[in-house]
Structure formats: C-alpha cells, structure tokens
Design a protein around this nucleic acid. Structure first.
Lengths: 67, 67
DNA sequence: TAGTAGTGGGGTAATTGGGGGT
DNA sequence: CATGTCCCAATTACCCCACTAC
C-alpha cells in the first residue's frame, strides 16, 4: 500500500451548500468574502475544508434548544 | 528494504485525486493540460511528484481575506 | 500464471465560476 | 448588505471498454 501524505478532507461547493441549506453561489460568496477558506483546484473550482465547515456549524453561534 | 537512491516521492492519480477532492480523470486532464508534471511508467500510466502536488495545494501565494 | 484494482482514452451530462440584476 | 436567480463558458463527474500495476 502506498504511503499517502497527510490530507485535509475537502468538500465540494454543493456539499457545503447542502450542509448550510443555501445556494452553492452563496458558498462562493462566503469564500470571496474570506469567511471560508477556499482551496482551488487546478481548474479554478473551489474546495472547502470539512474541518472548518464543521467548526462553523458548532462553534460560531450558540445553538439553543429552540432556535 | 531495497537500495533506493534519492528520488522524488511519487503519487498515483488516485492519490492526487483524493488530495484535491476530484476525480482521477480530472488529474489526468491536468497532466494533459500541462498543469501537472506527469511521469509515465513503462506501461503508460502517470505518476505525479508529491512535492509539486503539495506546492499546488498550498499555493505559491498565500490567499488573503477577500480573494 | 492468474486475479483484482487502478488507469488510460473517448464521449456526454452535471457542476462551477463569473458577471449582472432582483 | 446578504441571498437567489439568469446568462454563458469552462471545468468536472460518470459512462463505456482495453490495458497496466501489483
């Protein structure tokens, strides 16, 4: 088996959009605004760190039991 | 372990594809487009330099807030 | 030598990027 | 100011089969 280097799990724009229940275009705007760390493919498409997305899901705002 | 001189660690198309979160075929297109240095095996399969892949991941220029 | 997984090549549908407007 | 939608062009993903890698 090959020795795979350390890699960060990445998400596609559609994945992030589905998670946040928004349009993929909105995710792109977040990346442009610097709110999300975007890694570009060699073709220019963006990939997002899964770790950062999950961090934003549970670490940004406090979630209440009825919100 | 066999005698191995100083060589560049190579990655398979699947490895590179996993790192960039793309399809292995996409990595092949990058090689065809000259965006990636491809080393061919004697059978015609491609191998990619791990150093180059990581360099492309980090990006020569640090991304700033606001693209 | 045989078997399984990965890869190359070609073609087509879906996604994405970018700008503009609501 | 933030989000969703329409446009078009480029990039990417998935389908086939034949050959290579291990």
């Amino acid at each position: 088996m090959h020795n795979a280097p350390t890699v960060e799990p990445l998400l596609t724009p559609a994945e992030v959009a589905t998670i946040f229940r928004v349009d993929p275009k909105t995710v792109t705007r977040w990346a442009k605004a610097g709110k999300l760390t975007s890694i570009r493919t060699l073709g220019g498409h963006r990939r997002y760190k899964e770790s950062e997305v999950r961090a934003l899901l549970s670490g940004s705002t406090q979630q209440k039991s009825g919100e």
